[in-house]
Design a protein around this nucleic acid. Structure first.
Lengths: 205, 205
DNA sequence: CGCTATACAGCACGATCGTGCTGTTTAGGG
DNA sequence: CCCTAAACAGCACGATCGTGCTGTATAGCG
């Protein structure tokens, strides 16, 4: 077919990647197959392959989109809250919402990709690791702000708060994806709230 | 080759499954391939396939072995402790040990299988779901015993304790497999201990 | 010492994988 | 209005997948 405008190419690529993310969330990033994705999009294998240099590039692009969608669903709505405990609470709330009604049919994409590629080598592993490290650092910075403001106990380790919140989210995602019981979301929410409980006697005010 | 004694067949099968579990912990239960496993064992594809009815049976057998190994590494050493909080603490301790030095190169097999098959249908999905449900019920029963004995706050929900402990273990496993930082194990241990903290004023004595 | 059942190798099958190459079609610049 | 460049279909390639069938060698029973 023809040469098309850059905008059209971009939206085509975006729609392609959106379908790729949906598919990969169910069958995994490795099960994300050129043939299957092409069939689902109603185009030929070579046509689809032409949009990406290789399967690995497709995996990386799908991962990027999934990270963007996670940030748009979880972080950005919470970023309107003031930094610190309030923002962390908003993040956790949105996070559990995201686990309960994920944008993808197969649950949190980052978690799936992390478990799938944690024991492999290559660009995809590195990209997953980088994305999750960055997210943990965001959480840690918020926790540090909260501690500095006296919104969390002064002996709180921000890195530990970030770790525990992430672990609870990952664990909640796994449980919910396996059993689809809303109680898992309640448990996850309550456990996160307990982590972010204010100090009994406020230190600075 | 020949007809062999039942004992020999059993140990051969056990060795085969042990290799299958190792391989699957890295490449996933779906990436566990007859050809790759046969090559690793130095035998032909058809020879290996003859030991199992189908690939799905191989996956189920590998899963069974992984569950047995998890129980042997985590639950059974802790079962010598008295039921309730002491046993839960021992379980958590062993659990984190298991995450830090898993019997398989790719981390906790159950977690990997759970994430891999949570969005699929079939016997493997059902088996994973059943195994994890049973484990959660074990944790919940121990937590209920602890609450009844006054070793945990009386308003504690045993199901929530079981859920949170499992979520922390899963999250710790994911983080550790991705980054291989011992600090993750410390964080996981501390968070689990916090969940099992004794009531400030013991109710029954 | 034969006989038989079994564990396995070897091979072939269709399907699907990722990736190239070759046309063909067409939108947009000159 | 051409003409170039991009997007894609169609096809083929070797590799690998799971699964059968066939032949063969041998341990253990009678």
């Amino acid at each position: 077919m023809p040469r098309r405008s850059a905008a059209q190419v971009d939206t085509d690529r975006a729609l392609t990647l959106r379908a790729a993310v949906d598919l990969a969330s169910v069958v995994g990033l490795e099960g994300l197959t050129i043939g299957r994705l092409a069939e689902q999009l109603g185009m030929s294998k070579s046509g689809l392959a032409g949009r990406f240099d290789s399967k690995e590039q497709l995996q990386l692009a799908a991962l990027d989109l999934a990270v963007d969608m996670f940030r748009a669903a979880v972080y950005e709505p919470a970023a309107v809250e003031p930094a610190g405990r309030a923002r962390l609470l908003a993040i956790c709330d949105r996070w559990i919402d995201y686990v309960g009604e994920p944008a993808f049919p197969g649950g949190c994409f980052l978690t799936t990709a992390s478990v799938e590629f944690d024991a492999r080598r290559g660009a995809v592993h590195d990209a997953v690791k980088l994305a999750l490290s960055r997210w943990l650092r965001v959480l840690e910075a918020e926790a540090a702000t909260a501690v500095a403001a006296g919104e969390l106990p002064s002996d709180t380790d921000p890195a530990e708060v970030a770790f525990v919140l992430n672990a609870l989210a990952v664990g909640t995602n796994c449980d919910y994806q396996l059993h689809h019981k809303a109680r898992a979301l309640d448990h996850g929410r309550r456990a996160m709230a307990a982590v972010l409980r204010q100090p009994a006697t406020s230190i600075r005010g």
